[in-house]
Computed example of a mutant assay.
Amino acid sequence: MKNIFKILLSSLLFLFVFSCAGEDDNIVLNEVSAGKISADKSVLVLNNATPAVEAIKFSYTIPTFDINVVPQYFVEIGLKGTNFSKSQSVSTTKDPAISTLTHKAFNDLLIALGAKPGEQTDVEVRFKTSFSQNANYYSNILSLKVTPFVNLKNLYLVGDATEAGWNNNNNNTALFRDPGNVNKFYFRGYFTAGSFKLLEKLGDWHPQWGVNGSGVSASNPDGTNEPAVFSIPTAGYYSFEIDINAKTYSLTSSTAGAVYPTIGIIGSSTPDGWNSDQDMTASAFNPHVWKITNISLITGEAKFRANNDWGTNWGGSTPFSGVAALGGSNIPLNEAGNYDVYFNDLDGRYLFIKK
């Protein structure tokens, strides 16, 4: 009899627990007030000359529910006509209830969605409140017209005054891009007496950049309109600057400095984190320009340092390109991938070229 009673009691307890669990699973969340989103502009031409400048600001109101909940919030972006079947989401916050995108960040999102550089694209944006993969609440939909910019250009040295010689695919050294003006490039290093030009893509002779009167110009893709060479009268160190938008350049004598035995890149974005350096290489021709090729990097931070030690290290505040200072801040890397990374210990300039 006691055993029968225990079995009945256990069965009743099981039914009670199961019933409670079922009630919790079937809780209905009701949206009391809907989320809303607006933007400070509806037509936008993204500019590759100002990648880090704010391009657009989204403002939104947070929806309320009849139950106290803690969801996640996103600004969701898609191309018109896709019904957000393929979209890019930017995580955002409740306070402040605004989200901004730089020119480069917005451009990267649109290119990933399939937008064509240089063409005006119809874009839709909405605010998403998410509790789980299958429990999402959406705001009104914004309609924008956005023109993405053409991908960033790189410039490489070629010519008998350079280490690569007149070979268009011989580990040619890259120039360092300005972090604020992506059309401006710098190079400080050694040249032999002779001449050089600049290539936009390794392995291709055109377009190539050179002298045109007192300024510069580029050849056409078919090789026509080829410019003249930049001339180096005497072997030595020079500082070279070029602005391919303003069509200007300067070439002045410079100086060298102490040669470091080793320089490496280190940080949370590198393969071994902050534990050890990924060694870079420099040549006898240009012992101050360091390079590591096809390194796999994740989102995170990085610095450069000499002699596998923190006694001499460089850091900067801008991603992809910039000027690192001795003891400076960690360089942000906000896009994972394989990169060629350059660093010049004479002026602290660095460049990350995604493969």
Rank of each mutant, 00 (worst) to 15 (best):
K6L: 15
S11R: 08
F16E: 12
V17Q: 07
V28F: 10
A34Q: 15
A39H: 05
L44I: 01
N48W: 00
I56A: 02
F58P: 04
F58N: 03
D66L: 02
I67M: 12
Q72R: 14
L79D: 01
G81V: 02
N83H: 11
T102K: 00
T102S: 07
F106G: 01
L113D: 02
K116Q: 15
T121P: 01
E124P: 02
E124F: 02
S130F: 01
F131I: 05
A135S: 13
Y137P: 11
S139K: 03
N140C: 00
N151F: 12
N151M: 12
K153L: 11
L155Y: 04
D160Q: 12
V182G: 14
N183T: 10
F187G: 07
T192F: 06
G203I: 06
P207V: 07
P207C: 08
W209V: 09
N212P: 06
N220Y: 07
T224G: 08
E226N: 13
Y237G: 08
F240R: 05
L251Q: 06
T252H: 05
A256M: 03
A258T: 14
I265T: 04
S269R: 01
D277T: 08
M280Q: 00
N286T: 02
N286R: 04
H288K: 06
H288P: 03
V289E: 13
I295N: 01
T299N: 15
G300A: 01
N307P: 02
S317L: 08
T318F: 05
L333A: 05
N344F: 05
G348S: 09
R349N: 14
F352C: 10
K355D: 12
